[in-house]
Design a protein around this nucleic acid. Structure first.
Lengths: 216, 216, 216, 216
DNA sequence: TATGAATGAGCCTTCATTCAT
DNA sequence: TATGAATGAAGGCTCATTCAT
């Protein structure tokens, strides 16, 4: 409980404040339109101070992505420990992701942005790797669930990674497109139900002894 | 074969050249990082000339989107006339979309970009509308197929528009995410099969007298 | 009546057409904001053609000034031959100038512009000289009238050139400022009467045996 | 003598420096030909810095006009308090204006420019209004002097505003035209005497019991 | 002679980043 | 550590002028 500890604590708090501000601004303006100046104002600090905590706009943005993923990961982890069927776990992960999008719209937007812009951002390799680790973590969680399902004989011996891809792709695609469509068309789709139905579809497709694909 | 005709032909060719160059640059750099200067160089013209054919960067970009959609629409239209079952038509549309993404990767990227960035782009209203018309067209094509399926008693009486949304969401999501993942992980997923399986899943889910959802 | 003559006549007509168009555009937009493109459209010619008749925007503008002065000079010359008193001649020249401003507002604006902008225009020396000749001509006309008045014993032996300067300065200043003020304040001053009174004041001041300045 | 005070002082000095540089450049080149780059160099700052103190070229220019008017107004105000006859006050105002033009030639040019170009400049309304207020102030000063003269029975019951217009028109016209002529002809007219004579003429014309217009 | 497409230098403005205090 | 003034490179767009047809 010395001075160094307090300093460290303060330093972390500052970092959090800046990330909080950055999140708001990036979410509102997008990466390119956001300015350090605005983030500085939002965090009630000076532009110079931002650079004491982050090496630049880019690192700031990536840190935000990491933070977003950490939130998501922590939410998802709560679900996988629950005492329900494997199938239900997958559905619950989907629900959790949907709720994450709803409850953390700014984080959601930040993540969403990177999906398309990763190519144009010419991020430093170590930053790309950082992001890669997080997506890995999330993918692995689902992958493990599926593998467990296979081992327990509940799921057919599918390629766990393929199904994981399918799982997240569906989830991401539906939410992204529906959000977009609803916005453009001023509709208000019940996206959650859509999401659940879709995941149930996938789950049913890989379950043993269930009506499989219709190719029989 | 008069002079005006030749002039007109040349004018169109120039426009095409510029769009071609713009496609490459936008695809490589994204909208914000692309510069008129670079597009000019790529098309071996001067910056001033670009402005003789397009009113600015924005219009150039939207023209590209329209062009991309037109290609996609024309490809999709080829499919819907085919003499196969309704279910197969939907699968074929999905295949076609996948092929479009493969064969026109730059157009694909251009389209992909707009999905997420439409909010930050603050395009002129008339340009937004132009894009809106194209997405409408594509959605309506699938929607009509589904309605036909319902009328013919092949599909359950679902909401055609909801299923259309689901259809495109899945398609878009899987391709986008897989492309992204494959890039990050240097993998080479067989996305086409993934896509087909997924669409078949949806089709089977709305078909009459097939093993439906697993809620029974 | 040969072909060369017809050609020459056509050439002159073209030049006139271009000047006419240029007058409109310069008057409407000012020198800097006017574009050759717009002048070309106004004259229903191409930009290239403009350059066949004038060496550039600058010469075009100066030609216009010369034309404007020529109109003014020709109007003023009509007056000096009239059989009235010397004092009345001066007043009539003032009236004529006022009418010129009213009847040829575009020419007036063109002339007005050069007064302030001659410094910024960095005109070619020979063009400056051309303009100088015209102002000389106009000044000399008035100067001669005054000299005649002095010789005839009607005017005091003043410096003819000084009075000429005063004459034109007053005329120009009143019309320019009143026009400007009326525009800004949405007033509608009777400028002509103001002008006449002012010139009469000057005339009376240099007349022999009239109540002169109030210093006695 | 705290830090904020010093900062504020430095900020004001910078603003002054920029205005000083802008004055030189605008005076030398005119509004359209002046570049921010040149103003930056003249003030030994970077272009970006200019924008920290002024929102753009336009505001910079209008600030300069306001500054110029403020100088002029302050000079003129010194004169109207003097204990001399009403007529002499008017003459002194004229002298003061002439001296302003001589002593602040750059400010003079800046003001002169706006008179003719206000139409082509399409300034923002609030900036136009700012300028309008200053011209109003100057006009009102003279107008009040004339009204006082009328009340005191020294001047005839003329329209004070009309005479004010005449006053400034003459002043402005003579100085502008003479400056212009002298430049073109490399002469060196005694403009001050010319100006004084002219204003005396106006004063005598509106004085009670003096030799009035020569229409009798 | 007439055309008008093409050129490319030039300008205003923005903003990530630095550095003296 | 914190500040925020200063920097200057970069980009979209305009337009006088040229030149191949």
């Amino acid at each position: 409980m010395g001075i160094p500890e307090r300093k460290e604590r303060e330093r972390l708090k500052r970092k959090k404040d800046i990330l909080e501000a950055a999140k708001n601004v990036f979410s509102k303006k997008g990466y390119m339109n956001a300015t350090i100046e605005e983030i500085a104002q939002e965090s009630e600090l000076s532009t110079g101070t931002i650079y004491l905590y982050f090496s630049g706009k880019e690192e700031l943005y990536v840190s935000l992505i990491v933070e977003s993923y950490d939130i998501l990961i922590s939410e998802v982890k709560k679900v996988i420990g629950e005492d329900v069927t494997i199938g239900e776990i997958l559905v619950n992960i989907a629900k959790t992701y949907y709720k994450f999008c709803k409850n953390y719209p700014d984080h959601y937007r930040v993540l969403n942005f990177i999906v398309n812009e990763h190519l144009n951002l010419k991020l430093a390799p170590e930053l790309i790797e950082k992001i890669g680790e997080k997506t890995d973590t999330i993918f692995k969680i689902v992958s493990e669930v599926i593998k467990t399902g296979i081992q327990e004989g509940i799921f057919k011996p599918v390629d766990a990674w393929d199904i994981t891809s399918l799982f997240w792709s569906n989830l991401h695609g539906i939410i992204q497109v529906q959000t977009s469509i609803d916005y453009l068309k001023s509709r208000n789709t019940d996206v959650e139900t859509l999401v659940i139905k879709n995941i149930e579809l996938i789950v049913s497709a890989i379950k043993v002894n269930e009506c499989p694909s219709r190719n029989d």
